[in-house]
Nucleic acid binder design. Structure first.
Lengths: 251, 251
DNA sequence: TTCCAGAGTGTAGCATGCGACGTGTGACGT
DNA sequence: ACGTCACACGTCGCATGCTACACTCTGGAA
């Protein structure tokens, strides 16, 4: 776990980020039990900021307090993933539509930056690249969500993505390669910058829906028990009636 | 502010509910500044559980910590209401659709109970009735959200409704009377119990959209400066293409 | 050998001590 | 009369003391 630097930010916030990152990076095994004393000693702070950070993480569903026992690191279950992707589809698709109409130069610059970062990733180190990819992917989406003008929506999506990353699951390198995913994002970028709101929304919808299908099938396969997932009912709430090519162009 | 009872639940949680309710009930004036010492003395607890409760409230946007100054009670702004109603439309309409398909007997019983409570309300005491109405309204919606099977969605909607209630705004008795609102909910109830998912979703959409329009116009009028609100872009993401009567039947 | 009981260990939950800092106030100089 | 500065007060942020309780492990009895 990373040490706490000595700069001027709330200690509790720094501890929050440290523990959150440690969970996402898999340094804290889901299901394992820890104590506030342990975290406090590890991070060289007192129990108070640790407790405050853990309360936030418990609210987000990443850990659970067990009275007089410790703090349990929670695993993001398949059902959690279903909830997460349902919410992402319901929120990110309309937000992309809205963002396109409100996009300004600085948004475009940031989105381009995130896109380039995504393109420059190469699967040299398989382990770290997957994590890096999740990070870049998150940056790309965050720019769009913020541009939608709904701050609460952007924050909520952020917490959902954190939970998704706890699972550590990525389709990259498993059912899709870097280039496929890059192409998805390039589609979205081009439609947004072209001012094609309906097209951008449709591209985002296809991107998330494809990721959800592949990821749910892939993760469910890991545990053997694979109940069928049905996200198709979401179709009618994600503007399947907008004028966009049914099959988005692929190279 | 209500005192803390001596039963067995986390003190911090009880303090959270006390302060949240106090804000919603308007006992804590938005914009006013308070201290943790003040809350602790008032509720006869130490500063620790007070601080933990306030952290949660700050996360939800109901209060703000001002370092070495105190805790500021925040006002839900018009822009906040826009964000809230956008999210409610994007989430509650699909959730209603989904809930209809998964409704079980116990859900139906609870929904009926909430509906009856709504019907029995009468504007005898104008002040408390408005609050009671908001509470019953929240219960009705919560049953449906839980029945949708997405716990995160239900929780998120709950926090949004809390923020909405901070504003204390209700259309009841201003631009609509009790009977109109009851009719809205009766429509939703009947379509859900009839298994008409698309119809229930459409009814929920109309209900929320109408409330949003009236409330935003009404609240914006209070302060004089009334920028135009445009929630119409949400139409295509709330299943305007489902087979449902354009004008829902009214008695 | 098995079951039960009781003490020990470690934990969260809450109370409290303490330091740093922003703010307001009052005195002093001009 | 007005501007400036220093001091005192109140507050958060963090550290630490303390208590009740859940679990475990051991020892003895059946």
């Amino acid at each position: 776990m990373k040490e706490i630097p000595a700069d001027r930010e709330s200690l509790a916030d720094q501890v929050y980020e440290s523990i959150r990152d440690a969970i996402i990076l898999g340094e804290l095994i889901p299901g394992s039990l820890h104590s506030m004393y342990h975290f406090a000693a590890e991070l060289h702070v007192s129990r108070t900021p640790v407790r405050e950070a853990l309360i936030k993480l418990a609210d987000q569903g990443m850990v659970r307090f067990e009275r007089n026992r410790g703090i349990r690191i929670l695993l993001t279950t398949i059902h959690d993933l279903e909830e997460i992707f349902s919410l992402r589809l319901l929120l990110e698709v309309p937000a992309t539509f809205r963002a396109t109409d409100q996009f300004v130069a600085s948004d475009r610059r940031q989105l381009r930056q995130a896109l380039d970062a995504l393109n420059e990733l190469r699967p040299e180190d398989p382990k770290s690249s997957a994590r890096d990819h999740l990070e870049c992917d998150a940056r790309f989406h965050r720019v769009i969500m913020k541009a939608s003008g709904n701050q609460r929506l952007a924050n909520f999506i952020d917490t959902l993505r954190d939970l998704q990353q706890v699972r550590g699951a990525s389709t990259v390198g498993v059912t899709r390669d870097f280039q496929d995913v890059y192409q998805d994002h390039l589609d979205i970028y081009e439609r947004i910058t072209a001012g094609d709101a309906a097209g951008a929304a449709a591209a985002m919808k296809n991107h998330i829906a494809l990721t959800a299908r592949l990821l749910l099938a892939q993760e469910a396969g890991d545990v053997g028990s694979a109940p069928r997932f049905d996200l198709s009912w979401l179709d009618m709430f994600t503007a399947n009636n907008v004028s966009a090519p049914q099959a988005p162009p692929r190279l």
